Amino acid sequence: MAAATGRCDLHTHSLASDGMQSPAENVRLARERGLAAIAITDHDTVAGVKEAMDEGERCGVAVVPGVEISTRAGGKDIHVLGYYVDCGNETFLKRLAGLRNTREGRNEKMIAKLQELGVDITMEEVIAGLGRELRPDETVGRPHMADVLVRKGYARDMRDAFDKYLGENAPAYVSVPRISPEEACLWIREAGGTPVLAHPGIYGDDALVERILEKAKPAGIEVFHSDHRPEDEKRYQAMADAHGLIVTAGSDFHGARQGVVFHGDIGSRTVSAAVLEQLKRASAGGGSC
């Protein structure tokens, strides 16, 4: 399905990673908000894409098959979005499985650090909080831990949980070896997709962002994001122009926990559907799932 006109939210998460809603629910929300298209970009997995595409066909919303890959550069976690990837590419799926194994090891170490800090929490408790069985191709992330911390009174809300315990400079954070942004961009291209640097404003280091753009050479950059201020958007638009990059936008929707939407609500950051054609032209395959 292709969307010729309208607005698109190109960064959303579902139950396949650390979102609160099913992929189909994300698509239905997009329809309610009047969006022409939505991307499913779960962390290191494409497990939710087919369900979303099927729902998109049913309700008339174009679904972009996507992924958000975890990388490391300059001492920071850097995320690379991949659009129109071939979700059946066996090499790509094996690579994503390896990233999920790394994430699982990181999770166990973070739980151990939380326990050392006197926080009563277990990995079994975090998984039980999902309210369902975790599939092998799905991931557990820091928002799931944060949810438990809030429910048990260790934090006021999700943001407080990250600030006090789980964020990059917080005491329970664990850094693990990850692939580089260059490798992520290569993997995405080899899976027929288009790589885009996610939310550059979150990294707090524009010199690093510039180095990543030079070395990894993504096709695009997420200029509009729920955590970007207007001045950030202006700065990254200028970067996109200077490097000849596709400009994307996304809410980074994860759903609501304790009544608070994490990052932004679906449709809060959008670009024209014309961007979909730019992303398709920059990909090798066109995204079959």
Rank of each mutant, 00 (worst) to 15 (best):
P65H: 05
M145Q: 14
P181A: 03
I212N: 03
L149K: 13
V67S: 04
S226T: 08
L208P: 02
N101T: 14
S226A: 14
M20I: 07
G193Q: 01
P218C: 06
A242F: 02
V247Q: 15
H144M: 04
I212C: 03
M20R: 15
V61A: 00
L114P: 10
G56H: 00
R189F: 01
F162L: 06
N107T: 04
A172S: 11
I212T: 08
D18H: 08
P177N: 05
S226H: 08
D252W: 14
H254W: 11
V119E: 02
V209K: 01
A4E: 13
A24I: 01
P218A: 11
H144F: 04
H263M: 14
D232F: 12
G285F: 07
Q115H: 06
E57S: 13
Y203F: 11
A39Q: 11
V63P: 01
T270E: 13
K215P: 01
G264H: 04
W187L: 15
V261R: 05
V85F: 04
K215N: 14
A112Y: 10
V61S: 00
A4K: 12
V261W: 06
Q278Y: 02
E116A: 15
I40E: 01
R58K: 15
L149Q: 08
V46T: 15
G255T: 03
D241W: 12
L186P: 00
A62P: 03
K280G: 03
E124H: 01
L130G: 10
C185T: 12
A274P: 01
A4W: 14
P65R: 04
Y84K: 02
T41C: 15
V275S: 04
L245G: 01
L15S: 02
G167H: 13
E183C: 05
A62D: 08
Y203S: 00
L29A: 15
E90S: 15
H43P: 09
V119T: 07
K217P: 00
D147C: 03
A284G: 15
S180I: 12
D265L: 08
A184S: 10
M20V: 12
L208V: 07
V247S: 05
A39E: 11
L81G: 03
W187N: 06
G98R: 14
G153H: 02
Y154E: 09
T102W: 02
V140P: 01
V261F: 05
P65T: 02
S272I: 10
T12G: 04
V61P: 00
D241I: 07
G75D: 04
G193I: 00
R281S: 15
L29N: 10
G167W: 12
R135S: 06
I38M: 03
A242G: 13
E57V: 05
I266D: 09
L81S: 03
G287A: 11
R211A: 13
A249P: 12
V61I: 14
K280N: 01
A219N: 13
R33V: 04
A128H: 09
R58S: 10
R235K: 15
L213T: 06
G74M: 07
L15F: 08
E57I: 02
P177I: 01
R106P: 12
A155Q: 03
G167A: 07
H43T: 09
